[in-house]
């Protein structure tokens, strides 16, 4: 166990993803010294930002002693790879990103975009936060969430099952039970 921890300590990456959206207020929040210092204090070494269609460009940093290594890109076909190699994921509230991260059993902070017209997205993030599968934050409160989070208290997410829907559809259409 101690060896594993040592291994992880070598490179602990925070992966930020906004999916196909633009979410400048999240990228801007990631770029603030409060958030970066808080992440560094928690032992993270690298910060990778997938910024999507956003126009705010974060400051790159090569990670000198005592500070985070920061890099960014717009889109990638291998988001799954980034998620897999991350120690912490900070994501927009899209259900695709949320469940892809939860299925990989990665610690997750979901940041709700308050600029969207029809903001139903916070419903899912708040419900899952209430069930302790993830942390839910706003761009302005992100550094506080990072400071207060205890990843050990998160409950692993059990994937859902589509069979009940399939059974009801089959019954309705008069198809016999399998």
């Amino acid at each position: 166990m101690a060896e594993v921890e040592k291994d992880l300590e070598a490179r602990r990456t925070v992966f930020v993803t906004v999916g196909t959206t633009r979410f400048d207020s999240l990228v801007r929040a990631m770029d603030t010294p409060e958030v970066k210092e808080e992440l560094f204090r928690k032992g993270y070494t690298h910060l990778q930002i997938q910024m999507g269609r956003g126009s705010y460009i974060p400051t790159k940093s090569t990670g000198e002693v005592g500070c985070l290594d920061v890099d960014y890109f717009t889109f990638s076909s291998s988001i799954a790879e980034y998620l897999r190699s991350a120690s912490l994921v900070i994501s927009h509230a899209g259900s695709g990103s949320i469940f892809e991260t939860l299925r990989l059993q990665k610690p997750l902070i979901v940041v709700v975009n308050e600029d969207l017209m029809d903001n139903h997205q916070s419903e899912l993030a708040e419900e899952l936060a209430e069930r302790k599968h993830l942390y839910c934050a706003r761009p302005q409160t992100l550094h506080q969430t990072i400071a207060a989070m205890e990843l050990g208290s998160l409950i692993p997410y059990q994937p859902g099952d589509a069979k009940p829907v399939a059974r009801l559809i089959n019954n309705f259409l008069g198809f016999p039970e399998e």
């Binding site: 259900s95 469940f99 589509a162 399939a166 089959n170 198809f175």
Partner: peptide, 18 residues
């Protein structure tokens, strides 16, 4: 996005021959 992912999950368990 997420909508399609949910639909694919449903299609995975539906009997295609029906």
């Amino acid at each position: 996005g997420g909508h399609t992912a949910e639909m694919i999950n449903l299609l995975n368990v539906l009997q295609k021959e029906r």
